[in-house]
Amino acid sequence: MPPKSGNYRIESINNQRDLLIQINWVSLDNEAYYSQYEFRPDGEVHPFPDKVMADAIKGEIENASTITLSFLKDDQEVLTVRKEILSNGYLKITQKGTKPDGTAFRNIDIYHKQLSVLPYASSVGSVAIRPTEEGMIKHKALQAMEEQTNMQLDQIRQQIELLARQATEIRKRKELSMMIYEAKLNFQPVIGHLYYLYQKKDDSYALSMVSPKEWGGTGPFKQFMAAVKLLADHTWAEVGESFTNVNE
């Protein structure tokens, strides 16, 4: 049945000899389901406890990113499940088998990196799994956990982005301040006042109270660099004024 959302978990157990598969999902009809089973990925046939589903199970690790499972009933494969980690980190689950009426089916689900099924996953009904109270409780708990952790991670990401922007702004102010303090000053700058940074013909810098508009261009300088303001911490910040260079 097509899943609307869900979680898929694979972990090692029994001293890493066996693998445990846990799946919980919500159908398009908003019914919660839960299923789990164990298998040994040694390529050998082992008894399967849920006789309604299968008599035996055979698991094999094909390579570092692929596991294949075969469910057998009366020595016949009734379901083959291939779990593959794709190059983009997604988990692809392919199920092939035969329904009780003898017709074949194929079912593919794609899970994103947080192991939640994508909304466009396709599915055709296969093994009958009934909703249980345990499945409902586990799914709701996992869904709430995922929502909360995603929200917290998003808040941390926003804080990191803010700190990165602030760090970039401080670095720019520092570079501009170093340039100005190395420039020629014929006056004592006042905090909060607007000044104009120019590059001289010898490529050194000079700070002036006269704007390019008042000069009618760049005046005696090679080019206008920026309109700047002295802040209370004695760093300099570029302000958003623009002027036309007389050489353009």
Rank of each mutant, 00 (worst) to 15 (best):
S87N: 10
G216I: 09
P41V: 03
Y205Q: 09
G102F: 00
T132P: 06
I129E: 05
R40T: 15
P100M: 04
K92P: 02
L142Q: 11
L118W: 02
S211M: 07
L79P: 00
A227L: 07
K184F: 12
V78N: 07
A54W: 01
I61E: 07
K222M: 05
A232G: 04
T66P: 00
L79G: 00
E248R: 11
D203P: 01
L142P: 00
Y205H: 14
N107S: 15
V81A: 06
A167R: 13
K213L: 12
K201L: 09
G6F: 00
A144N: 12
M151W: 09
D74Q: 13
F187I: 07
Q199N: 05
E182V: 04
V45I: 13
E31H: 08
A104Q: 12
A144W: 07
L207D: 02
I23P: 00
E169Q: 15
D101Y: 01
V78M: 11
I67E: 01
R106P: 03
M179W: 04
L28K: 14
I170G: 02
F105E: 01
E169H: 12
Q76D: 06
A121E: 01
V117Q: 00
N63Y: 00
S70E: 12
A128F: 09
R165D: 11
Q158V: 08
E77F: 05
N24Y: 05
G89H: 04
Y90F: 14
K4P: 00
E133G: 04
L19C: 02
N24I: 08
I180C: 05
V26N: 09
Q148P: 02
D74E: 14
H46T: 11
G135A: 10
S208D: 15
Y111P: 01
E175F: 09
N247K: 14
R171A: 15
N7E: 07
Y198G: 01
Q22N: 08
H234I: 12
F71Y: 13
G89V: 05
Y196V: 02
Q159H: 09
P212E: 08
Q95Y: 03
E60S: 13
S123Q: 10
A164E: 14
T80N: 11
S126T: 10
E147Q: 15
N88Y: 09
E214Q: 13
A54S: 06
K174T: 15
E182I: 02
V239M: 14
G6D: 02
A164R: 12
E175L: 13
S116I: 14
Y195A: 02
T235M: 13
G135H: 02
N15P: 05
L69Q: 08
K58H: 03
P189A: 13
I108P: 00
D202A: 06
P47K: 07
I10R: 12
F187E: 05
H193N: 14
E11N: 11
T132G: 08
E62F: 06
L153C: 03
V45Q: 08
L197I: 04
Q199I: 01
K51G: 09
Q155A: 15
P220I: 10
T98P: 01
I61A: 08
E62M: 11
A227P: 06
